[in-house]
Nucleic acid binder design. Structure first.
Lengths: 232, 232
DNA sequence: ACGCGGCTTTGATCGGTGTCAATCGATCGG
DNA sequence: CCGATCGATTGACACCGATCAAAGCCGCGT
């Protein structure tokens, strides 16, 4: 298998600040890989051997307790980075939620490349800081919000993220209608709830006319202001 | 006020990878500042004007809802970074828990300096990645753990962090006796619980002989294995 | 010593969310 | 078309942790 030219080229975000020579060098160490929905890419506590850049699709980052409780600690969309550069082990499992295409690097190769290309490291730093901000605001949700607030916040977040990452046809502004890349159980794992509570809150919002649920994973936002005020 | 030489010199972590000339240059743009317990350093949603390096003391990073619920989303110990480089606004408030000394940089100065010193940016990246890992494992706690599990995890974390950051006299291995830099309410804000639940769980552990509580904020771990198994 | 105020502990009760179980509904293969 | 299967919904109930309220403890200033 040859190097994956389109991997890098398609992801402008990661390339900004790199010149052509650098892009070619990065190409040389990355390989494209397809991952189908449900397939794992990295296991929790594995030696951190892989780093990857998402080209297409959505993946979940999870941690679990021994007795099987799961928490989704992050969601990776196109152009996001996954894996743990400069670390010994990965603290989270990565599993594809939808069919996905990623550009995979061996961690050693990537680390070496990054250290000698400050432009790439800077980009990576900015992304990591932004991800940390998002993660922290999610802590607020997990620790202090009620189930209705969690659901409303989640729906608003999804309508923004799916639009801006090109996972829905509309690209300007938040989407009003979109397909969730999550099952009900996975929504529960994102919000720290049970599947039953998620289901009840969804149907409650539907009955109140705030949203519509045309299909299992489809959501249409009918009354965004209500949702915003419910989100708290 | 002159530049704060000791700010940088004392923090070996941030200096690794910088040569003397760079350290002097960084000195020139930073100022030492004392913050007393309870005093805020950065306000949530402020324009992100400050970046700082903790020299001594412990600070909390918090986000709040409009109706006053608070969640502590991070804790900064000596040598940790606070503030948001390369970002427009700070998403969290920073308030000192104990009297603290920090080395403050204007964000613009710091950003400019960092961009031209890859060694510093690399260090910052490693720290941010480590912080992201810690934050994610805290999400697991907030979303999926019960009150007893939260308390046990918290006590174990404190015994490790306070030892390794030099906030307790013992420096090798986790501390068995330490002074919390938190009030009961603040412990509740870290764990996503109420003050009453925290108090009840503490006294329960005391009655079971797992810990002792010699003073308001002092904890002695009597039976670490129990605590580990309770943490789940 | 005394009383005051803040933080903490303890008690009684309530409600939200989890748990367990049954039903429903859509998709798929025969 | 029909049953099998998997995910989602709905219902009944229990329990954990929140809420409200009172008392305790400790440090502090007078």
């Amino acid at each position: 298998m040859s190097s994956c030219e389109t991997c890098v080229v398609r992801n402008r975000a990661i390339c900004a600040g790199l010149d052509n020579q650098e892009i070619n060098a990065l190409n040389a160490i990355g390989r494209r890989r397809n991952v189908s929905a449900g397939e794992p890419l990295i296991w929790e506590d594995d030696d951190s051997l892989l780093v990857a850049n998402v080209i297409e699709g959505v993946l979940k980052l999870t941690t679990s307790t021994e007795d099987g409780r799961e928490q989704i600690v992050g969601v990776a969309y196109p152009s996001d980075f996954i894996g743990r550069p400069f670390g010994q082990t990965s603290k989270a499992s990565v599993v594809a939620l939808t069919d996905a295409r990623v550009c995979v690097f061996s961690r050693n190769d990537f680390d070496r490349f990054a250290r000698s290309h400050p432009g790439l490291e800077h980009k990576l730093l900015e992304r990591t800081l932004a991800e940390l901000d998002r993660t922290r605001s999610w802590m607020m949700l997990l620790g202090r919000k009620t189930a209705p607030e969690k659901i409303a916040t989640f729906l608003l977040e999804m309508s923004e993220r799916l639009a801006e990452t090109g996972c829905t046809p509309i690209t300007r502004g938040p989407a009003t209608r979109f397909t969730l890349p999550f099952s009900r159980q996975q929504v529960a794992d994102v919000l720290g709830l049970t599947i039953e509570t998620v289901s009840r809150q969804f149907t409650k919002l539907k009955n109140e006319g705030v949203i519509d649920l045309p299909a299992r994973r489809d959501v249409e936002i009918l009354d965004r202001p209500s949702l915003v005020s419910l989100a708290g």
